[in-house]
Structures are given as C-alpha cells and as structure tokens.
Design a protein around this nucleic acid. Structure first.
Length: 287
DNA sequence: AAGACGTGGAT
DNA sequence: TATCCAAGTCT
C-alpha cells in the first residue's frame, strides 16, 4: 500500500502544468524531443525552442533529412549542444532501424544516442503509457525527503532508490504516477525553497518530521564555468550559429583572447562533430 | 567512477 | 556579485 499514491495523483490532477508535450495527441516524437531538451534545462527555456523545432521537424524523418548543423543552429542557446547532435543522430537511427517510428521498447530506446536510463524510461512511460521506474532529479529529491529524511539524494542513483521506485510504482497508471512525482518535485518539493505547506504529502514526510536536517553528505558537485573551456566552446559555437555560412578563423579568434585555450576548445568542438573545417581557415556547422 | 559538458534565471 | 542549479549522458 502506497500512502503517497492518492495524494500525489490528486495533487497532480489539480496542479499539472499545461505543456505542449503533455497534451492529448502529442506524438511520441514530441515527447522524445522534449525529453532531450529538458535534460538539465528548465521548462521555461525549452518552450520556445521546442515550438520552433516541432514546427520545422514534426517527424524523425524530417529531422533526419537535414544537415546536423541545422539542428545545432536551431538548438540555439539551450546549452549542451551535443544534445542537438545526438537527437539528430537518434532521428536517423529511428528512420534507419525503426521505420521512422519512435520505438516503444525501452531497450531499443536506450540504444539510441543521447538516451540514457532516465530518458528511455521517460519516453516509454509518457509516449506509450508503459510502466517503468522513472528516476530524474525531481523524483530522487522527493524520495530522499519523504522516505529518506534527507535534504538531497546522493550524486548517483542507488540500488535502494531503484527498489523504492519499484515498491512505490502502482500497478495501474504508473506513467501518471511518474509524471506526478516529477511535477511535485518541480513545483513544490524544489531544491532550494520547498513549499511544504502546499505539499500533499507533508504529513508523512520523513524530512519534515525530522525538522529538515541539513544535507550532510559529500559536497555536491559545483559547476564552475567562467574561464573554462566550456565557456570558450560556447562562444565559438555562438559565433558559428550567428553566421549563415562558414566563418573565417579571424571571426573565431575574436571570441576569446587566449589563443591556446581557444584552439583547444575549437579542436574539441571539431572532435565532437559540432564544428567542421570546411576550407582553408574556414569553419562551419556540420553538414 | 569522477569529470566534462552550456546557459541564464533566481537567490 | 557569487553560487546554485534545471526532466542527464557519456567516457
């Protein structure tokens, strides 16, 4: 018996956001696109890019027919542009191996580029209403607090969490349960300022019962950014996105002062397939 | 199995 | 202003 089930499902019924990939009739492809875009990226920033993307490429086949550089360009400033490349490659794999239809088998999904444990479970659950344990950062935080009595989960998914996910997963409507817990984590049981008074399971929350003990685990990995290769890669790619065609090296030189780091970043972009050397000192997005 | 990998809004 | 961090994946 899962004491969380009904309160969380009822809360979701009343509080779920109206998002395009959740609407009735939303295609499996739209669910897949949304999941790629939402990896480490807030909903508010995904929405406009998602709309452009789906208008231009309403099917895997449409995207697969394009140059990967167009995917990278349309990705815009969502961040982690390798996701755009992987989504493009996944679309090509879907066309080549699955008849252009987003597969409904979780293992087939998991084999696609850019699709890991979370995304495969999410697509199978939300596009095909299957029953899977879906462990994203929201679900893991809710579990850690309600059941574990701690402020945050560990950095990596544990066997205990998977077991808990299996235990709590209802026989019916498992997909709705999954999205409901995710939504609760996203809107109420947030990382920094949880809104416990509005929480449907506050009365059975272990973390609350213990009076919110502070996180005492190992330091959570902080992301430095200023001055890193990541920042330089971002500037280089932004310059390439902002030009119609290939750019000369001097355009790229203007994006960062330190030559050694600039070259290292450019080389890594080429190695990742995000940038192509198209001529003598001429660079462009992949064709 | 830590660390790399973008970006911008919130605090 | 500095730090946090948002539906992870890959190596």
């Amino acid at each position: 018996m899962n004491a969380l089930l009904e309160p969380v499902l009822d809360w979701y019924e009343a509080n779920a956001r109206d998002l395009p990939w959740r609407r009735p009739g939303a295609s499996a492809w739209s669910v897949m696109v949304s999941e790629f875009m939402l990896q480490q990226t807030p909903v508010a920033r995904v929405l406009p890019v998602f709309d452009q993307w789906m208008a231009r490429w309403p099917t895997p086949e449409a995207l697969a027919a394009e140059a990967p550089g167009e995917a990278v360009r349309t990705w815009g400033r969502l961040g982690y542009p390798r996701r755009a490349l992987r989504l493009h490659a996944a679309a090509q794999a879907i066309v080549e191996h699955h008849g252009g239809v987003v597969p409904d088998d979780i293992d087939a999904l998991r084999a696609l580029p850019g699709v890991g444990d979370y995304t495969s479970a999410a697509i199978a659950s939300f596009a095909y209403q299957q029953s899977h344990v879906v462990l994203d950062t929201n679900v893991r935080r809710v579990f850690a607090r309600v059941a574990g009595g701690t402020a945050y989960p560990a950095s990596a998914v544990s066997a205990v969490e998977r077991r808990l996910g299996e235990t709590l997963k209802p026989l019916e409507r498992a997909d709705r349960w999954a999205i409901a817990v995710m939504e609760l984590g996203a809107l109420v049981c947030t990382s920094t300022s949880p809104d416990c008074p509005r929480c449907p399971v506050r009365d059975i929350c272990r973390w609350r019962a213990l009076d919110y003990p502070a996180y005492d685990g190992p330091p959570r990995r902080g992301q430095t950014y200023a001055g890193t290769d990541r920042q330089v890669r971002g500037k280089l790619l932004a310059a390439l996105r902002d030009h119609e065609g290939p750019v000369t090296i001097d355009v790229l030189d203007a994006t960062w002062h330190e030559a050694a780091q600039r070259m290292r970043a450019l080389d890594s972009l080429v190695a990742d397939g995000l940038v192509e050397l198209v001529g003598d000192d001429l660079y462009g997005l992949p064709t």
